[in-house]
């Protein structure tokens, strides 16, 4: 038993090790990538935020991430409702088509986009990167939303209707709030995935719309600038927010509902 537990702890540490190295390194005083850090300092953060070679890609990544999340949700929400709630011819083929980006290797897709977007003059444009990222995010968002929809009790909508709510009101006051956590999680996944995506960005983003991972890759190839560890820590923070935000949203909503209670005076 203890042996199993020790093994589990060892594996966890081994898996988490890159984080344990990268985050402390971003606070290091050493002039090059070096572990353990000889001293702690926030100088690399100052450097990161002062250098347009870093802030540019950061802003690009944020813009592309938000646009990807919005576009993904605009497609994935209606598509999920259609897949779960309606039977139509070609339904399973449609489902399979949406899932293909999960199966096809990214490098293959990247090459495809490079050639195809070249024809469409979408290379080195925000739109191109956003479209490609959306394509990757849709399957994951759909998996999350369809799972939530399948678990959604239809009698809740019927109950609301019998109590006098019109269809749009039912969606606004019952369906949407209950599914909102799944929507938020799906949107965050899309954002984080886009924020994180490297292969396609390397192929198609170019200099002007370079994303943060692309800039990290370039920087690492040229000089191994320790500012890279700052960028890494930021990527990690974005992913962490993806995990923590849904819990925070839930507690805020309860507070709002309590304030709205007919018992509160």
């Amino acid at each position: 038993m203890t042996l199993v537990r020790l093994g589990a702890i060892a594996i966890t540490i081994f898996l988490a090790a890159p984080l344990l190295v990268v985050v402390p390194m971003s606070f290091s005083t050493a002039p090059s990538l070096q572990f353990p850090p000889p001293g702690l300092w926030v100088g690399f953060y100052a450097k990161f935020f002062a250098d347009p070679n870093w802030t540019g890609p950061l802003v690009n990544s944020i813009i592309i991430g938000i646009a990807t999340a919005v576009l993904t949700m605009a497609v994935a929400v209606p598509a999920s409702f259609a897949l779960v709630r309606h039977r139509f011819p070609g339904r399973s083929a449609f489902n399979l088509l949406l899932m293909t980006p999960l199966i096809v290797p990214h490098i293959v897709m990247a090459l495809g986009y490079y050639v195809y977007f070249g024809e469409l003059r979408l290379l080195q444009s925000y739109l191109g990167v956003v479209l490609a990222h959306t394509c990757f995010s849709i399957p994951v968002a759909m998996l999350i939303i369809t799972a939530a929809l399948k678990g959604f009790d239809l009698s809740l909508e019927r109950a609301a209707m019998s109590l006098g709510a019109r269809p749009l009101t039912v969606f606004r006051l019952v369906t949407m709030p209950i599914l909102a956590p799944a929507f938020v999680i799906a949107g965050l996944f899309a954002f984080v995935h886009s924020f994180d995506e490297t292969v396609v960005s390397l192929f198609i983003s170019g200099r002007d719309v370079a994303t943060l991972p692309r800039q990290m890759f370039n920087s690492f190839r040229m000089e191994a600038d320790p500012v890279i560890s700052v960028a890494s820590s930021l990527l990690f923070a974005a992913a962490l927010a993806g995990v923590l935000v849904p819990a925070a949203v839930r507690s805020v909503r309860r507070t709002l509902d309590r304030r709205n209670s007919p018992l509160a005076s």
Partner: peptide, 27 residues
């Protein structure tokens, strides 16, 4: 159904999980 003025009680209760009991009843 929303204009029928008929109350329905379901087997699985169908209470709105995101609303307090008072808000459910006041709905």
């Amino acid at each position: 159904p929303y204009e029928r003025n008929i109350g329905v009680v379901f087997q699985n209760y169908a209470l709105f999980p995101h609303m307090s009991v008072a808000n459910n009843v006041a709905f």
